[in-house]
Amino acid sequence: MSVRQNQQPQTALVDRYGRSVTYLRVSVTDRCDLRCVYCMAENMSFLPRRDLLTLEELDRLCSAFVDRGVRKLRITGGEPLVRKNIIWLFQALSRHLQSGRLDELTLTTNGSQLKRFAADLKNAGVERINVSLDTLQPDRFRAITRWGDLATVMRGLDAADAAGLKVKINAVALKGTNEDEIDDLIRFSHDRGYDITFIETMPLGEIDGGRLDQYLPLSIVRARLLDRWTLDDIDHNSGGPARYVRVRETGGRLGFITPMTHNFCESCNRVRVTCTGTLYMCLGQEDAVDLREPLRAGASDAALQAAIDEGMLLKPKGHDFVIDRGANRPALSRHMSVTGG
C-alpha cells in the first residue's frame, strides 16, 4: 500500500457552475479482450505500457481525489480486469472505504474475467459492479464483440452472484442489432435480481462501420416498451447519469442513459482520468489536464492538487455529442476505451 504524503483536509471540488464533483471514473488500461463493434475497430493499436500509470501512481492519484471529497470511485478500461495485478489496486483503495472517506469502490467490466476475480473483488470491498451485456444470443454476442463467448460471461455472472456482488447490466441499444432483444434483456436481468440500464451509442472514436447504422434513440425504445410494460418513474439515483423507472410487471429497476437525445449535464458530478493520467472533465469534450507529469516529476501533494484545480476551471457546462450525418464521423477521435467506459 502506498504511504500518503499528508492527511490534511482539502477543500471540496466544485466547478465554475457550482456542481460538486464527487464521482471519479478511472481507466486502468486501454486494452480489452473483446472488440465490441460500437467501441473500437477490430485491429487496434494500444498504448505502450510505459505510458500507462503504474498501480502505485493510480493509487496516489485516486487518493488525491478522495482527499478532495470524491465519494465514489469507478475503475474502468478497456477491460480493467485484464490489467496485471489489478486486485492490488482494489485492495489498496479499500482503505478509504474502511476509513469512511469513500462510499463506494466499484468497476465496469465485460464479465469475461469475473469467474476468476469476483471473490477477490468482494473481499477488497467492492459491493456492486456494472457488467456490459448487449445480447443473450451466443452468435449475436460473438458478432457484437467479435471475439467474445457468451457462456464465459454467464459463468462470470454466476461467480458474481456466488460472491455476493450486486450486479447491474449495461446494454447499448443498437439499431438493427439487438433492438428485438430489449424485452428479453429486461426479463433476464430482473429475473436474476439485477438492475438494467440501456445506453445510447456515443460518437467516440473511429470504428469499422457507420455510427448512423448503430444509433437507436432511447426515446423510441421507451415508447415501444410502453406498449408492453408499465413504467413508473422513481427517484432512484445510483450516482451516475441514468434516469430510472420501475417496471411494474417485474418489480425491477430500468435505467436510461441518453447522451444524444437528452443530455444530463446539468447535474454532472463526474470527472474521468485515463490510464495515462489525463484528466478529462467531460467525456464529450477535449479539454484536459496532464496529471502524469506531476506524478512522475515527484510533485508534492499540493502541486498535484493544483493541477486538479486547474482541471476544475475547464469543466464545461455540457457536452456537444452529435453524429455527423454528412461525413458519418465521430464527434471525437478518442475511443471510449482510452477515456474509460
Rank of each mutant, 00 (worst) to 15 (best):
R246V: 09
G69A: 03
D235Y: 11
G209M: 12
N6W: 13
L165D: 08
L304W: 01
A327H: 04
Q305W: 12
I257S: 05
E104I: 08
R334M: 13
D67F: 02
A331L: 06
V289W: 08
I257G: 06
A302V: 15
E42R: 12
F321L: 05
F141W: 04
D67H: 03
D208Q: 11
R329Q: 12
L291Y: 00
F264C: 06
R228F: 14
V271D: 03
V247K: 06
F65G: 01
D33S: 09
D184W: 06
E42D: 15
L174N: 01
N110Y: 08
A299L: 15
R325S: 08
L212G: 07
A162P: 00
K115P: 13
V273H: 01
T177E: 05
I186L: 01
F46H: 00
H262C: 10
R325P: 14
D195W: 03
S132I: 14
E249I: 08
D235L: 09
G100F: 08
R16D: 15
Y17P: 01
A331M: 05
T201I: 02
R25T: 08
L150A: 09
Q91M: 06
L254V: 07
A159M: 07
S219A: 07
I87T: 10
E293L: 10
L212Y: 12
V21A: 06
L304A: 00
K168D: 13
P330L: 11
S132T: 11
R270E: 07
T106I: 05
G284N: 02
T261D: 10
L73C: 05
C268M: 06
P294Y: 04
D149I: 04
P330M: 13
S99W: 03
V26T: 04
A302G: 12
T276D: 09
R16P: 14
A303W: 06
T145C: 04
L332C: 04
N110W: 08
V37F: 08
R192V: 15
G100W: 05
F117D: 09
L114M: 05
L313V: 13
A302I: 15
L254H: 06
D158T: 08
D309S: 02
E127S: 09
N110V: 05
D180H: 06
G156H: 06
I234S: 00
G255W: 05
S112I: 08
S2I: 12
E42G: 13
R211E: 04
R50N: 14
S112D: 09
G125R: 01
H262V: 10
G277P: 05
P316F: 03
N237V: 02
S219P: 14
N328C: 06
L313Q: 13
L121A: 05
M260D: 07
F117A: 11
A173R: 04
L226T: 08
D287P: 07
D59E: 14
L58H: 13
V273R: 01
L212K: 07
M336D: 01
H262L: 15
T54W: 01
A306K: 00
A162W: 02
G156S: 15
M44T: 02
C36L: 00
